[in-house]
Amino acid sequence: MNTAPSVAEVRALIVKHKRWDLAFAVIGTLALMVGILTFVALFADMLIDGMPRLNYDFLTSFPSRRPEQAGILSAWVGSTLVMLVTAVAAVPLGVAAAIYLEEYAPKNWVTEIIEVNVTNLAGVPSIVYGLLALGLFVYQFGLGQSILAAGLTLALLILPVVIVATREAIRSIPSAIREGAYALGATRWQMVSQHILPYSIPGILTGVIIGMARAIGETAPVITIGALTFIAFLPPTPISGAFPFLSFEWLTAPFTVMPIQMFNWTSRPEAAFQANAAAAGLVLLVMTLSMNALAIYLRYKLRKNIQW
């Protein structure tokens, strides 16, 4: 027999469900807070420890045995140059690979294997990339323990991130755009270069910068290929006064990066070095956050220009 529930019963049911709703909202908020509060606590702790050390001299001094004279000049210049190489290597390769996979590759088992591998590569521990790079770049190609070798290593590391982000961006473009281009007689390359690529740039940029933000904090692969700890000089300038005005000598220079400098300081016995490590951590965090901010800004700005 089927009797309709009374209004009171329905109300009770609704109240019960709403209670579950509320419970889940509370649990969800708590879960969110665990992450956010941990970050805030860490950040505040670092701010308190590191802020007194953060000044112009800290950014423009080389490492030293005296904590109050030590600085991160060679470290941040090293990190910046390595990131530059990483971007120059990873972006064209990653974007080209993604375009091929999305627009050109035939749908068969070879493509499928490639796709699975790209996704899996994103989960490979970074030290494995370091070992690969040590054998391949440092010894096989004879690049030595240089900025170039480090940049290429980190480029490999972020390549999967760039590829996946680019594919997502390309996939979000409506196929009507492709069909429209073909209908007007465009070749596949014209369609890709004049429509797909420009429209997917916001997404690509986001992927690239998120990848870079991961790479800048990497220590293991950079140590594996032989980054130094104490280095009190900078790579040669890329711009020279004489013809041809550009010099690529800096690519082969020895270097160190921010996380290595930090790690070295945290393992020292003097408490003052711990403050230096915190200050270096702040700088690294600011570098990472500003990269993320740039990504958000660019995405916002470029999206505004797209009108379908």
């Binding site: 490492p63 030293s64 032989g226 130094l228 700890t229 104490f230 280095i231 009190a232 000089f233 020895p254």
Partner: peptide, 18 residues
């Protein structure tokens, strides 16, 4: 290394790794 580079006024460069 720090003192040596200071004494040589940057004419010699020293790198130290771990």
């Amino acid at each position: 290394a720090e003192e040596f580079q200071k004494a040589k006024k940057g004419a010699v460069k020293v790198t130290v790794g771990i």
